[in-house]
Design a protein around this nucleic acid. Structure first.
Length: 601
RNA sequence: GGCCCAGUGGUACAGUUGGUUAGCACGCCGCCCUGUCACGGCGGAGGUCGAGGGUUCGAGUCCCUUCUGGGUCGCCA
């Protein structure tokens, strides 16, 4: 029979009880972490979100109370009243409250608990599947509580900084209009409008721009966004953005404001100092040096251009790549000079997952001898040129990819990261930020047979590239920027187009006629007719920021109730089948059950 | 949609070239124990080895299919 708290009120969280309170009466609440019954003496470790506290039952304890304490089991919820006392010499140094305990005078069992499917301890090694099914228990674990609490602190720090700097927090709709550009939308059927659908926002992009038109000048929102795409360790179908927009600013204003934001958040929540200004790379530099637009700059192993050296060495693969508009680049994995053939082949295979047809390699062992996948095309002169360019001094594995630039960058960029993992070149506790700027405005979509916006259709081109919009659209750079940390994109943004003529040109390049553009974004284009300030902004992925802060491997570990790989929720079983009546109200016909068998044969 | 990894009492793991009764730790239950804190001691319960099929005298182990979870490519303006 469970009891209630009537007449008792919590006076302290577990770790707020300290030796300053010795002799005083306190009331504490929480979950039973552990019971240690020594016969005539019994200890309970009590846990709440602040930590652990020991309760003691001994010779002064009334018999009835002691018997009640003996009934306690792990995860029972209790309230205990008692006197704080010193533990004397028996201090537990691994516990924040290890020098004191509560001599309990009253105990109430508020809720009993069945044996949990896994133990509620830090760093437990339970399968994700089980953790997520019993997420409410997983969230009791101290490391998860730390993550979720830190997340709240980060959000608080963001709000304080932005409010101090004149930003207004304004909410935008969750039920909005589908925008077929970009990611797939989650759709919500309308009951009132048969065959019509709302979409959940992929981001509040257009609304925040409208708020600039409306004169709010500085906006922010910590907001859920939805994208119906496949999941990854750092991607969930619903995720949280720190969404920011500013008026009457240029790229420098936005970057400097936002690096101050990041600096303050890391200082307040991690006590970590970030030196400003944060390093910057142009997109082109990032690709050339790291093979990635979200480079991990904690280590070297940079890409080197070997096009000049190798085009005419006689190896047809290289020659064909160059004739096909390609390039030849390489990385040098120092410390892999004695890697065996099997392991090299594994690296080659790894690289092929990223699109390269092959990876040529040249190994220079510690003793100076060479081994290569294309020995017969390597004259002494070419080898020495490669050695010089790759700074090879022995114990090197040079991996070379010849292909179209995007394939070369993707492959070597991925191999570079794989090399770093194998050689353990990075530490999670090391944080290196970098801004990547001057992204291309457009990229060519082979499948659609047209240009698509790399960022979004409202991204402002660089002034000096405007003249290229007609002649060489692929060369136009955007006033767009991403903030990257340790190989993750933390956030990105741009200056927006606010001039009618440039916007029209942009739509033209994207292959929208005026009607299509108005059908999709008419409310924005109309709004721009009534006085639009120059504006721009950025959006940060809150989940990723906290993931990196907590050194987690997945954003699942910093989201209270995340979804699994197929976007379902193991705890609630969402998504689920709904009542036929609900469907009828929404004018959705029920799905016919699939014909059993036959369709294969 | 493709590729890769994993699945063995409640949990985490071990299980040899296929061989008799599937092993260990933690947890759980009971008894004992006055300073424990990963308490200790003694005893006990708990498994259709993810599922289905196949090979075999015999399958946790080999093969096929499938389910579940994870990673990743595609995808993610």
């Amino acid at each position: 029979m469970s009891e209630n708290m009537q007449g008792l009120k919590r006076t302290h969280y577990c770790t707020e009880v300290s030796k300053e309170l010795i002799g005083q009466e306190v009331v504490v609440t929480g979950w039973v972490q552990r019971r240690r019954n020594l016969g005539q003496l019994l200890f309970i470790t009590l846990r709440d979100r602040t930590g652990l506290l020991q309760l003691a039952f001994g010779e002064q304890t009334q018999e009835q109370l002691f018997e009640k304490a003996e009934r306690l089991r792990s995860e029972f919820v209790i309230v205990a009243q008692g006197i704080v006392r010193s533990r004397g010499a028996d201090v537990n140094h691994s516990m924040a409250t290890g020098d004191i305990e509560i001599e309990v005078t009253e105990l109430r069992i508020l809720s009993e608990a069945e044996t949990t499917p896994f133990e509620i301890v830090e760093n437990s090694d339970v399968k994700d599947e089980l953790r997520l099914k019993y997420r409410y228990l997983d969230l009791r674990r101290p490391d998860m509580q730390h993550n979720i609490i830190l997340r709240s602190k980060v959000a608080g720090s963001v709000r304080r900084f932005l409010e101090t700097n004149g930003f207004l927090e304004i909410e935008t709709p969750m039920l909005t209009k589908s925008t077929p550009e970009g990611a797939r939308d989650y759709l919500v059927p309308s009951r009132v409008h048969p065959e019509n659908f709302y979409a959940l926002p992929q981001s509040p992009q257009i609304f925040k721009q409208l708020l600039m038109v409306s004169g709010y000048d500085r906006y922010f929102q910590i907001v859920k966004c939805f994208r119906d795409e496949d999941l990854r360790a750092d991607r969930q179908p619903e995720f949280t953005q720190i969404d920011i927009e500013m008026s009457f600013v240029d790229v420098e204003d936005i970057i400097s404001m936002n690096e101050k934001l990041i600096q303050q958040v890391f200082k307040e929540t991690m006590d970590m100092n970030i030196e400003l200004p944060i390093q910057r790379l142009t997109y082109q530099e990032a690709m050339d040096r790291y093979g990635s637009d979200k480079p991990d700059v904690r280590f070297g192993v940079e890409l080197v251009d070997l096009t000049q050296t190798l085009t005419n060495c006689g190896f047809a693969v290289f020659e064909n790549a160059i004739n096909g508009g390609g390039t030849i680049r390489a990385i040098n994995a120092k410390g892999m000079g004695d890697l065996g053939r099997k392991q090299i082949d594994a690296l080659v295979k790894y690289g092929q997952d990223y699109g390269a047809k092959g990876v040529a390699w040249l190994q220079i062992k510690a003793d100076g001898t060479e081994k290569s996948s294309f020995t017969k095309f390597l004259s002494e002169e070419i080898v020495s040129q490669i050695k010089e360019k790759m700074n090879a001094t022995g114990d090197d594995l040079i991996m070379i990819v010849a292909d179209k630039p995007n394939v070369v960058f993707a492959t070597l960029g991925a191999l570079r990261l794989e090399v770093a993992r194998r050689l353990e070149l990075t530490q999670k506790s090391d944080y290196k930020f970098v801004w990547v700027t001057d992204f291309p405005l457009l990229e060519y979509d082979e499948e659609a047979g047209r240009y698509v916006a790399m960022h979004h259709p409202f991204t402002m081109p660089k002034e000096e590239d405007l003249h290229l919009m007609d002649s060489e659209p692929s060369k136009v750079r955007a006033q767009a920027y991403d903030l990257c940390l340790n190989g993750y994109e933390l956030g990105g943004g741009s200056l927006r187009i606010y001039q009618q003529d440039i916007q029209e040109k942009m739509f033209q390049l994207l292959g929208f006629d005026k009607e299509t553009a108005y059908e999709r974004f008419g409310f924005l284009l109309n709004a721009f007719k009534y006085g639009t300030p120059p504006h721009g902004g950025i959006a940060f992925g809150l989940d990723r920021i906290v993931m990196l802060m907590t050194q987690s491997d997945s954003i699942r570990d910093v989201i209270a109730f995340p979804k699994v790989k197929d976007a379902s929720c193991l705890m609630t079983d969402a998504p689920n089948v709904v009542d036929v009546k609900q469907l009828e109200e929404l004018h959705i016909s029920t799905i016919e059950p699939k014909q059993a068998s036959e369709d294969v044969e």
